[in-house]
Design a protein around this nucleic acid. Structure first.
Length: 816
RNA sequence: GCGGAUGUGGUGAAAUUGGUAUACACGCCAGACUUAGGAUCUGGUGCCGCAAGGUGUGGAAGUUCGAGUCUUCUCAUCCGCACCA
């Protein structure tokens, strides 16, 4: 048999398609596995990262099919998004055509790699049917108060001309195009993800063990829970008068209530409402107003470079001492965290310290180290002991935190508070290629939900995409509609949804039987059976964005009564990047490898084998052309040596005792590979060692020529390898085993029983020699044999201790 | 700064509870078959050394009969977050 990847792969891909080989069964009494890889954006072509992702999920899916599970392994396309519009601007192609052409191309690539996806459940999130149900969920969420509209300061990308969620701002820049973002005041829709902040944080515990620690930590940090004290600061008489009594004061949040007696100034964010009031009412000098304007318009990156501020000429009263404390504006105070105002304790906070130094503000220390002296050159931020703090003097600063909170609560001047870094998810985008937000603006009724029977609110196709403004807004007719409530003329919302909304529930849609796709998003019964996802596989880059949003939607859907569980993904496998020449593959670096070219030259099985063999899945994978050749050579040998195998439709029975040493060794290696393979899918995901085991077994088989041993070996090995190199294995199996061997094989313990065993002999832990003894030899005899063998090294030494580790080694402890 | 991870041959990487370090593969060297080889097969290959032997898992110390594995410290690299009060 001569190996030809082209003819074999085509043959089996056609066979699988014709036989609907990978469609899940609707028999819900069978045990199930839901294997999901993160679906791709239809960018045009697959890249090696995709190949790695889907090779992994495909291996899981195929393994569990062999184990007789009912397997759901679906694929779709996350097909809304800006690149479709960017392509339109660049090439004049319609976003819809561009998207669906790409999908067609990429689907062909998928199937030419032999991925065992359910073809009948393929979907694209830009399908109108998908939009229909998504809009329906949006309406439900609005009714529940989980979606709201408000005016606020938003992250605006000047290049993409759209708003970004906080999660989409990376180091102050747009996650997609790297343009520095600016703040813009706009009306936006928000999901109330903060309402679930605590649950999203606490439920991370449920994911321990199933999710990588790194991802859990990243989510924990992102949610950023911190406990502390919130209290009001009140203006003194003079300041009240200055402000025309419009404000009594403002509230602040601190995680360091123990430093309360060290407060020497307070600071507001430049965007704070009191500041705005003072500007509007000309209560500040032109010079100060100019300074504030500069602070507000500086990009967040530049704002971090140096601390700056300005005094407002106001004072508040210290809540405990009643002393006057000056109020400043400081550029490091963030409007969107806490209340946008802080109490400043320069003696015990680095930022406050820098600011006080710059503007020559007082520095009042109230905590000192237990051992050392306080330094005047920096803030002391460690745990210490309180002084200058009235009744709290001599108290440990950690302990003082709760005591002082109690004190504030007892006096009813403040209370224990929890703050989160997590903010509500801004979901509206001023772009065309997204799911329209199903609302209508009516002069009489205000913001009105579209009626569910009118869904989907589909996108118009006759649009002009220029890159200037929102194409929906510019469309001559689309936005004009009737108010669903009063029937009068109204204007349709022209914002579309963030594409992360689609990816937040697609895994639920896959559970739905396609025959009901028209009528329902999914059914309780189907969800109950298929969810949660047993193995979710994808890139670490989604650690926060997608995975947090999907968890949020799951909890919302639970509270809306659609589903009955808290977390969607039981096990998460985050794959490493694919590198070439030490760097991530990218077009700009010119170090990409085109999957199609690899398939053309070596075949899909070679690409799959290399990817799984070269590194464990969570690690980075360095592309290596000659190692790819090596993978190809292995497959060729594996295929061609199947000529040693006899045709059979059941696993051969072999009398182990009657075999030669080489034959026994070959069987042992084969069964070792089998044992390894069974661990891989549940615990370790180390496909590389599983494949190494198969290679060892192949090497061992090649040292003997018993055709029954060859046949048994191939029965097992081609089954182990089927998830990795399916085309090759199906071809061997159909030729030799009538496709009967893709099922679990019982491990025979007899092959691991050996007559003799080799033990290492070491002196003081250093290996010197080895001995071969009968497996059941007594320790006493083992020692005797070992001593003879090591006589050379024991001579003239005093033997202090003898250690026998059964089946491993002998160690002599000597002195001399 | 905070958090997470990773350091083992020329390279990608192996190594149950601490128990013969470097499996498997790439590369390299030698040989065989060949008109030829980027095909195939066989053998070799951590480092120093002719050898005996020594040495060796980023570095230092510790626990132990025995440490890649456990403990402490340290160095380097990568990733994520970052003025979050």
């Amino acid at each position: 048999m001569e190996y030809s990847s082209k003819s074999i792969e085509k043959k089996w891909q056609d066979f699988w398609k014709q036989n609907r080989s990978f469609e899940p069964s609707e028999d819900f009494t069978k045990e199930k596995k839901y294997i999901l890889s993160m679906f791709p954006f239809p960018s045009g072509r697959l890249h090696m990262g995709h190949v790695r992702n889907y090779t992994l999920s495909d291996a899981f899916a195929r393994y569990y099919r062999q184990q007789n599970f009912n397997v759901l392994h679906p694929i779709g396309f996350d097909s809304f998004g800006m690149p479709a519009e960017n392509a339109a601007i660049k090439n004049g192609s319609h976003p819809k055509k561009w998207t669906y052409d790409n999908i067609d191309y990429m689907k062909n690539e998928f199937y030419s790699l032999g991925f065992s996806f359910s073809r009948e459940r393929e979907l694209a999130t830009s399908d109108e049917l998908y939009t229909k149900f998504e809009q329906s969920f949006i309406i439900d969420m609005y009714e529940k108060g989980l979606l709201y509209r408000k005016k606020g300061m938003l992250n605006w990308c000047p290049h993409d001309q759209t708003v970004l969620a906080n999660e989409q701002v990376v180091e102050g820049c747009c996650w997609r195009c790297d343009t520095p973002i600016v703040k813009k005041d706009m009306n936006q829709y928000y999901f109330k993800i903060t309402q679930y902040g605590d649950e999203l944080l606490n439920d991370l515990k449920k994911l321990e063990g199933g999710w990588p620690k790194q991802v859990l930590t990243m989510q924990e940090n992102w949610i950023g829970k911190s406990n502390g004290l919130a209290f009001d600061l009140f203006f003194d008489e003079i300041s009240l008068a200055k402000l025309n009594n419009s404000f009594k004061g403002f509230d602040v949040f601190t995680t360091r209530p123990d430093t309360i007696y060290g407060v020497s100034y307070t600071a507001l964010a430049p965007e704070h409402e009191i500041v705005s009031y003072m500007i509007e009412n000309a209560l500040l000098s032109e010079d100060v107003i100019t300074q504030i304007k500069v602070m507000k318009t500086t990009s967040s990156i530049d704002r971090q470079k140096e601390k700056s501020g300005v005094s407002l000429g106001l004072d508040v009263l210290h809540p405990l001492t009643g002393k006057k404390v000056p109020v400043w504006i400081a550029n490091f105070v963030l409007m969107d965290y806490g209340s946008g105002a802080v109490m400043a304790v320069p003696a015990h906070d680095d930022r406050d310290f820098d600011f006080a130094k710059k503007y020559d503000l007082p520095i009042n220390a109230v905590i000192k180290p237990y051992e050392d002296e306080l330094s005047a050159d920096s803030a002391f931020t460690e745990v210490g002991v309180l002084f200058n703090s009235h009744e709290f003097d001599e108290m440990n600063s950690k302990e003082a935190q709760s005591k002082i909170i109690e004190h504030f609560e007892a006096k009813k001047i403040g209370k224990k508070t929890t703050n989160y870094k997590l903010k509500d998810w801004g979901v509206s985008r001023q772009r065309y290629w997204g799911a329209p937000i199903p609302f209508v603006h009516c002069d009489a009724c205000g913001l009105v939900m579209e009626k569910k029977e009118n869904l989907p609110i589909a996108l118009p196709e006759d649009i002009e995409i220029t890159g200037e403004g929102n194409p929906l807004d510019n469309h001559p007719t689309w936005k004009h509609c009737k108010c669903p409530a009063c029937g009068n003329d109204a204007i349709r919302e022209t914002d579309t949804m963030d594409t992360f909304v689609e990816s937040s529930w697609y895994f639920l849609r896959f559970c739905a039987s396609p025959k009901n796709w028209e009528t329902e998003a999914f059914s309780q019964e189907q969800i109950k059976y298929w969810m949660g996802v047993d193995h979710y596989i994808g890139g670490i880059e989604h650690a926060i964005l997608h995975l947090l949003y999907a968890r949020f939607f799951t909890k919302v859907f639970r509270d809306l009564g659609y589903i009955e569980f808290d977390e969607p993904f039981d096990k998460l496998l985050t794959q490493g990047m694919v590198l070439k020449d030490g760097a991530k593959m990218s077009k700009s670096k010119g170090n990409t490898v085109d999957p199609d070219a690899i398939i053309e030259k070596y075949g899909a099985d070679t690409a799959r084998l290399f990817i799984l063999f070269a590194a464990p899945p969570t690690q980075e994978l360095e592309w290596n052309d000659s190692a790819v050749e090596g993978a190809y050579r292995f497959i060729k040998r594996f295929y061609e040596r199947s000529s040693h195998v006899n045709k059979t439709d059941k696993i051969p029975t072999i009398v182990h005792a009657a075999l030669s040493k080489e034959e026994k060794f070959a069987r042992k290696k084969v069964y070792e590979a089998l044992v390894r393979a069974n661990d891989v899918y549940t615990e370790k995901y180390t496909f590389n060692t599983m494949i190494a085991g198969v290679m060892e077994a192949m090497n061992a088989l090649n040292l003997q020529n018993n055709s029954a041993v060859w046949s048994e070996g191939y029965w097992i090995l081609s089954s182990i390898m089927e998830p990795v190199i399916p085309h090759t294995c199906w071809d061997i199996s159909s030729e030799k085993f009538a496709l009967k061997n893709f099922s679990s094989v019982k491990v025979l313990d007899e092959v691991f029983v050996e007559d003799t065993i080799t033990l290492g002999v070491s002196i003081n832990g250093k290996r010197r020699t080895e001995i071969e003894v009968a497996t059941d030899e007594s320790d006493e005899n083992v020692l005797k044999i070992a001593k003879e063998s090591a006589a050379k090294w024991l001579e003239g030494q005093t033997l202090l201790k003898e250690i026998v580790v059964p089946k491993k080694l002998v160690n002599f402890v000597v002195k001399g």
